[in-house]
């Protein structure tokens, strides 16, 4: 029993990722019929990059909801979505990326595939990291707001032209299961699939390239990392600046200097590897907890 519990503890993140995915995308009837669930639960946004149009999805994607409202004729500001994002952000920041996002899980699994060389960062990492904020500003906010048709209707630019999570969770299953949709497949679909393939290939070699360089949702949550309820702290008395945490860190963060970096997805690998047990999760009692 003690052994089993230890195994659960070691893989708790993977277990949570899978369980949460089963919870949020458990609409098996959708997969059976090749249809999208459109019931009342869709009013709620799930925290990760989880496409509304996935046949199994029970909730909505916060980015999709944001673009949808900003692109609508009557609303130019999305109070509800912003509120939900702030709630999620304030609670966990990029904990969501590490534990609750299905596309994060997807990349984690891809990185486990054996490959000749495993590299942490793409070349140009320092500049590429800011690209996700550009995507957020342009494709999620500005274009839906201002690139409108003759009736004043905008569209979800990020969903339509970029999001590989949507392609793998929704675009591909829906087209596979609906012969009628195949007639609508054209250049745009090919473009989206190409983006997905590139992300997949990169994810085998590099760790979570989409999360690091492209994800606008991660960009939003990253702004909360310094102030969220769930955060890390480094005990300066114990830390020897050995750098073991950075070596282990998939996001390549100098954890001992910046335990709440905007790149941190809260995977907790640094906590496990620190030889001095200097890193820990801050809890409300202000005591260091494992």
């Amino acid at each position: 029993m003690a052994d089993f519990i230890k195994k659960i503890k070691m893989n708790i993140r993977l277990i949570v990722q899978f369980s949460f995915f089963a919870l949020t995308n458990g609409y098996l009837k959708g997969f059976g019929e090749g249809k999208i669930y459109k019931g009342k639960l869709k009013m709620f946004c799930v925290p990760g990059l989880n496409c509304y149009s996935c046949p199994g999805a029970l909730g909505s994607c916060p980015l999709g909801a944001l673009q949808s409202v900003l692109g609508s004729r009557e609303y130019k500001f999305a109070f509800y979505v912003l509120g939900i994002l702030m709630l999620f952000g304030a609670l966990g920041g990029r904990f969501i990326c590490g534990f609750l996002c299905p596309f994060g899980l997807f990349q984690d699994l891809l990185y486990k595939i054996p490959f000749v060389k495993k590299i942490k960062n793409l070349p140009g990492d320092r500049f590429l990291k800011w690209f996700k904020y550009v995507l957020l500003a342009v494709f999620v906010i500005l274009l839906p707001l201002f690139a409108v048709d003759i009736t004043g209707l905008g569209k979800p630019w990020f969903c339509e032209y970029i999001c590989p999570s949507g392609t793998v969770m929704a675009g591909i299953p829906l087209v596979l299961m609906n012969e009628s949709l195949r007639g609508a497949v054209g250049f745009l679909y090919a473009w989206k699939v190409l983006i997905l393939i590139v992300v997949i290939v990169l994810s085998v070699i590099f760790y979570r390239p989409f999360c690091k360089y492209l994800c606008p949702l991660g960009a939003i949550y990253s702004l909360f990392n310094n102030i969220s309820l769930y955060r890390f702290t480094v005990d300066k008395d114990k830390c020897t600046s050995c750098g073991a945490c950075q070596k282990k860190c998939g996001m390549d963060i100098r954890v001992w200097e910046k335990p709440n970096s905007i790149d941190c997805i809260r995977c907790g690998d640094c906590i496990k590897i620190c030889p001095e047990e200097a890193i820990s999760i801050v809890n409300l009692n202000n005591k260091n907890k494992k």
């Binding site: 659960i8 277990i15 369980s19 919870l23 458990g26 609409y27 019931g39 639960l41």
Partner: peptide, 19 residues
Amino acid sequence: MLLSCLLSVLMLASCQQTE
């Protein structure tokens, strides 16, 4: 963990009802 699994099962069951 057990509670989370129970919650998942209950959620799925109740969703069938809505459908």
